[in-house]
Design a binder for these strands. Structure first.
Lengths: 234, 234
DNA sequence: GAGTGGTCTAGACCACTTT
DNA sequence: AAGTGGTCTAGACCACTCG
């Protein structure tokens, strides 16, 4: 089992600091040669290290050492920049699109509205230390946010909610599962189609316990780890 | 990009019910032939479907369609059989070992005790509908549970805690990340070394807010999805 | 334009599971 | 004993990135 030995060897180099977070690995052909194997076998090792979250890949650009994951606590805040800042990381968001659209089947089901009801859909790409790590799609119920798009949605949505509409996130129902990146989502994250990813779905409720919006967050799975404290109810 | 087309084709067959949960796929050579490709390309598709959680693999036995994941709510209960039962699934546990051992570095750090302090270590393998899905290692502080091993640890630990020691889980700090399965853990789960997995680490506190034990849970990553409700504190 | 990663082919051998 | 999955080899072509 060569591929296990190669995994170990690369892991050791990372742990020893020879390969620092964000560093690019040598070309596959060179790595294959230096491990005295073929590209196919080498890529098996790399793919497993990717699945493990030790390495990540940028499509056609190469393999890189994963930085520490962002600790994501669903209990604390929904505010990405604040979360990043609290962990001494730099955050940045890019607005991909903001529209009033007929709800997709998935969105309608999550928001418990009839299919094709009109909802706001806001897509963002978020960067962590200049690396694109998550594509967030928000589906927002217009009844609580009339003319939302006349306001600034390029920065923090939670801030706009609070300042313009007196709406504060109070509770959230979340669900974390594994998926893979496809099409535009993959492309925005500079990932190869089919790469493993983490999907975080959230349903957000305001201070009156009304369901006000939902998020679908497609994360590069090495970029987050879920971490929280829970008081057991049973 | 053949491998994407193959992924889609297999996905469709699953969605259409032609391949039901738990079913074994045809042999790789047959699949490769029917998709008019080679085993290498076919296995690329299968590996991605595995990463996505649609398929799983049993070492040297073949590829299977993943059942629905167990919804795991860290807020509700730490009791695996109860969780499974509430979702109409059948659960079973196997005791792998139970010993008093010097704490490993990881365990000592989690439990905040000096390295090599003696702690109980209990390893279990848990089955969901007769499929092994998680290896759980418990490290338990002996000071709260004198002579723990004289009691029954083959069934529910929480029950023993409660009945024999008046200790009730009250709070838990958890952390979810991705890893890969290696060695004995992989073998117990009938997985190939290096397969992607989910690691759930928990620190459990009793009704007096004392840290009493910790768990390391290595899950087949297609077998669970984290799902919870949180009240935001900020 | 050179080099790189993405994708694919057509085999092979072994150890293990299954029949 | 036959079949299967696990692993590996030694190439190839293309589209893209990067200097």
């Amino acid at each position: 089992m060569q591929y296990l030995k190669i995994m170990e060897a690369i892991n050791e180099q990372i742990d020893a600091g020879l390969l620092a977070a964000g560093n690019k690995l040598p070309a596959e052909r060179k790595l294959a040669e230096s491990f005295n194997t073929t590209r196919v076998t080498l890529r098996e090792s790399l793919a497993l290290l990717e699945a493990e979250g030790k390495l990540y890949r940028e499509d056609r650009r190469g393999w890189f050492v994963s930085p520490e994951p962002l600790r994501y606590d669903p209990t604390f805040t929904t505010d990405f920049p604040a979360m990043a800042c609290a962990q001494n990381r730099q955050a940045r968001s890019e607005l991909l699109s903001a529209n009033l659209v007929p709800a997709s089947r998935r969105a309608a089901s999550l928001l418990q509205v009839p299919p094709l009801s009109e909802v706001y859909r806001i897509d963002r790409l978020r960067y962590l230390d200049e690396r694109p790590v998550v594509v967030v799609t928000n589906f927002i119920l217009p009844e609580y946010f009339p003319n939302l798009l006349d306001h600034d949605v390029t920065t923090s949505l939670t801030a706009t909610y609070r300042k313009q509409f007196d709406v504060i996130y109070t509770r959230t129902r979340y669900r974390v599962s594994t998926t893979s990146l496809l099409g535009d989502t993959a492309h925005a994250l500079r990932a190869t189609s089919g790469s493993p990813a983490m999907l975080v779905e959230r349903l957000n409720y305001d201070q009156h316990n009304n369901l006000i919006d939902c998020d679908l967050e497609y994360w590069r799975h090495d970029a987050i780890c879920i971490e929280s404290m829970a008081t057991l109810e049973k």
